[in-house]
Design a binder for these strands. Structure first.
Lengths: 218, 218
DNA sequence: GCAATCGGTTTTGTTCAACATTTCAGTTGA
DNA sequence: TCAACTGAAATGTTGAACAAAACCGATTGC
């Protein structure tokens, strides 16, 4: 009875979302309505509603008369996402101002990443990195833009789950995030923006290389 | 039976969307499942699926156990949208290059607006203006960003429907669009970006003034 | 008179069973 | 080998039904 103003379809969507980020469901996999409904103990109609919610978040893809599939971020989609990130994040940095609450969040994310590094918990490092960039977007003070970025991040997370990011793909960003944070705290927003642009280009190349290197030829 | 690979729910969503942009359904209005389902000749379940699709586009709002309502773009939402437009459209302009196909679309939109002006068809002028700005976003060559902008535009259209934009709110932009297009065709992208920034600020002020001036105090 | 409470009504949330339609896979036939 | 056909499986859609929540009005109590 843990539902408070949460629709059953939303609860179901959350459970599926958990399976997605946990890696139980892998990109490209087809989700059978009947089987999943039986498994989750809900009706097909409710499950279909949950599907809509997740499709809206870009986690699932719906093909008419074919079924629902776990989204498979294509190479093109990843390039697109990094393209947008450069536009949005860099511009958000330029709009930063002194004591914006998001700066504190950036600092928290950096600290969390460093702590996780100490425990060699690379998944936590990855999450902290995501939080860091989400905080950057929050600098723009735009709820809609933040929500949109959340969708992109979810899709990217999906791609990251596909390739189990090894240590060397996560570790470098800990220091880079710290540097970027310092630049921002120093008030050099334009410099930070250019710094992030290079940062993202490098990150994109690394991810694409890793993807193409392990059979991402979908 | 003009459906080809289009789900009935999608068709229904399109019909509702048409009613929204046409103004039959006004912001804040509640949509009864039973009544609308009967009216549209579909089952409640199908209509609910259509609701999900439209909610995803930001045109409808869903309140648990309360029903579905036509979204009422708040003052804050409009400010947010213009904020994002400045970020996205201006940056897209900076990324423009010589013979990008989107430039041709911008030209088409300008021509369409001028033609509509001749017929004093202000609704068509408004649509052409929307097309013009959508073309600007296409300069960024990002499908996801284009889709996102489409949602914002739909929400803005909703707000515009609320206040029946009079002639003087549409007409000035015809010339401004033409000027902007000329700057772009001249290859002065940075100049165009700054020009658009002022343009959008002015537009935002005009819209907000019109909104607050006719009882938008929701 | 007014506020809080109590029921009945309406509406949404959810399920179920059924059928139409489409896709898919295996078989048949040339 | 390949094309067309056939039947099974999955999705698309419907209608009815019931639970639970919200809404509305009347009653009750102060």
């Amino acid at each position: 009875m843990a539902d408070s103003s949460l629709t059953l379809a939303e609860v179901v969507a959350d459970r599926i979302r958990a399976r997605l980020t946990f890696g139980v469901l892998t990109p490209g996999q087809r989700l059978s309505e009947a089987a999943l409904a039986r498994d989750l103990g809900v009706s097909r109609n409710t499950l279909r509603e949950a599907f809509r919610l997740l499709t809206k978040d870009g986690l699932l893809e719906h093909k008419t008369n074919r079924g629902v599939f776990v989204a498979t971020p294509s190479m093109g989609a990843i390039i697109d996402i990094y393209h947008i990130r450069r536009i949005v994040e860099c511009q958000a940095l330029r709009m930063a101002h002194g004591r914006h609450p998001a700066v504190a969040r950036m600092a928290e994310a950096v600290a969390a990443a460093q702590a996780a590094q100490g425990h060699q918990d690379w998944r936590a490092v990855g999450n902290a990195n995501m939080d860091f960039h989400a905080a950057i977007v929050e600098l723009a003070d735009s709820p809609k833009l933040t929500a949109f970025y959340g969708n992109l991040a979810a899709e990217l997370r999906l791609a990251f789950g596909l390739l189990k990011l090894p240590r060397n793909l996560h570790e470098p960003y800990i220091g880079m995030n710290a540097d970027l944070l310092a630049t921002v705290q120093d008030g050099q927003y334009e410099t930070a923006a250019r710094q992030l642009d290079r940062y993202l280009s490098q990150s994109e190349r690394a991810v694409l290389a890793a993807l193409s290197g392990q059979g991402g030829g979908g």
